Amino acid sequence: MQPTTIPVDLNSWSRRDYFYYFTKMMPTGFNVNVDVDITATYDAVRAADYHFFPAYLYLVTKVIQGQPEFMMVMQDGRLAQFTELTPSYSLFHDDDHSISGMWTDYNSDFQVFYQNYLDDVTAYQHQQGAVGKPNQPENAYMINMMPWLHFNSYTPLVFNGLPNFLPTVEAGKYEIKNGRRIMPVSFTIHHAVADGYHVSRFFDRLQTAFDHPQKWLNLPVCR
C-alpha cells in the first residue's frame, strides 16, 4: 500500500524560515541521548510472555506519530507529512552475527502489530544479506537496538549528503539502577523540521508511555 501524505504549505508553515535556514544556509541535524526507565513496560510484556523488542518498536512508533514534525518528507521537490510511519529495523542472525534490514507494517493495535512482527521474523529469519524483507516503503524510519552495549552516546553518520527528515532511533542495553531498568535511547533528527523542544517533548511522552503499559497493552493474549 502506498503511504499517504498531507502537503505542507511552506508559505503558511510556522517553520518555513527555519526550514530554509537549516537546509540551505546551515544544513544541520542533531542527536540527543537519554536514559529511559523501561521497568513497567518490560515487566508487563515479559509477564505476558511477549518479547520486549517488538514492544519497543511499537511504542516508539506510536509516540513519534503523535508529533507531525517527525513525519516530514520531500516528494518531487515539495514538503509533505506522512500520515503514518513504518518501523525499519535490523534482524540479527545468531549463526554469523550479521544483520538484515527488516520492516513491519505498523498497526495502532499492539496485538496486531506484534503478530505482524512475528510473521515477518518467521518469514525472513533465514534470509541472509543486507536486505531481509524487500520493498521497504517510503514512510519507513530507522529504529534499532544494540542489546549488547549500554552507551552514553550514539550518533549515526550519513555520508551521501541526502536530506532525511525522518528520525533515527537507537536503544542500547539496559542496566539495573536502584532496582529500575534503565535503557539508553538515542534520537537523531534534522534541525530543519524540529528543535530541542520537540525532542524533549518526545522523550517526556515516551517515558509516560513506558510508565503506563496498561494504556496500550491489551492483556491477555494467546500466541
Rank of each mutant, 00 (worst) to 15 (best):
V121P: 01
Q111F: 01
H126M: 06
Q127I: 04
I99Q: 11
D105G: 11
Q125D: 09
D119H: 08
G129Q: 09
Y117Q: 06
S98E: 13
L118W: 00
F113I: 06
D119R: 05
Y124Q: 09
Y124C: 10
F110Y: 10
V112W: 00
D120F: 00
I99P: 03
Y114N: 10
G132N: 14
Q125W: 01
S98Q: 13
A123N: 08
D109G: 02
V131N: 08
M102V: 14
G101P: 09
A123L: 07
S100R: 13
D105W: 01
A123F: 01
G132D: 15
S100W: 11
S98L: 14
G129Y: 04
T104C: 07
Q111M: 08
M102N: 14
T104Y: 02
V112Q: 06
D105L: 07
Q111W: 01
S98P: 07
K133L: 07
V131Y: 01
Q128N: 06
G132W: 08
V131I: 15
Q125M: 07
Y114W: 05
S98I: 11
V112L: 03
M102S: 14
G132R: 13
G132Y: 08
W103S: 14
Y117T: 07
Q115D: 09
D105I: 09
S108I: 06
V112F: 00
T122P: 00
L118H: 03
Y117L: 06
V121M: 06
V131S: 10
G132C: 12
F110T: 06
S108M: 08
Y124F: 12
D119W: 00
Q125G: 04
D119K: 10
T104S: 04
T122L: 04
N116P: 04
V112T: 13
D119V: 09
S108C: 08
S108Q: 11
N107P: 05
Q128P: 04
A130Q: 13
Q111A: 09
N107Y: 02
D120K: 01
